[in-house]
Amino acid sequence: MLEFDLQENGLRKLNSALHDQKENSNQTVWKITNPKGSHAIAVGIDAPIEVNIEGSTGYYCGGMNKLANINVKGSVGPGVAENMMSGKVVIDGDASQYAGATGHGGLLVIKGNASSRCGISMKGINIVVHGNIGHMSAFMAQSGTLVVCGDAGDALGDSLYEAKLFVRGNVKSLGADCEKKEMRPEHLELLEQLLSEAECDAKPEEFTRYGSARKLYNFNIDNSDAY
């Protein structure tokens, strides 16, 4: 295992060392100490390595991640795992706004709460939040799955495309074109798998599914007066 003190060695040195790791890297486990809320920690990794961050981070932690498993033993600032491609990012604490924004793939697990705009414009990423999420989450979400074990804030799934949303608690309000959907066996199966990967003991049948009513993103000539 490699130990890296961020305050002593600096962010550029860390990210450049992480970028040097390739698929067959021997340095498979990294421990990052003293993150102290710094921004852009472990951004742009492209190797199947494990990175353990011992404390809370600032903006964009684990952004653009590919293949790596990143664990944060604390809370994260805005934009965690933004545009993630694959791999897994696990946050022990809370996440600030736009967690997992525009993510294409991989799994983001937030064991605490996520604030506003969680999963905004997600494009294939799976996100599991053990706690609650804030307003405008999954705004314009295109594909992937957002699982929320607690409650969701205002305007969930506004202008939603084809992302699947599952909420166990209350939804304060649904956004435009987002509606409640029936839970079919394939959805329970998907939930079971994601909850297990996210180490969450919630039961799939406790969730409600929400999805796009598909009225907004298909042009309807009857609505032309509104423009």
Partner: peptide, 22 residues
Amino acid sequence: SEYRALVNLPEIESAHVWEPEP
């Protein structure tokens, strides 16, 4: 504005840290 501003406060590791609601 950011967690960085709080990291040197006494016993911040054991503080209750949260984001104020809109």
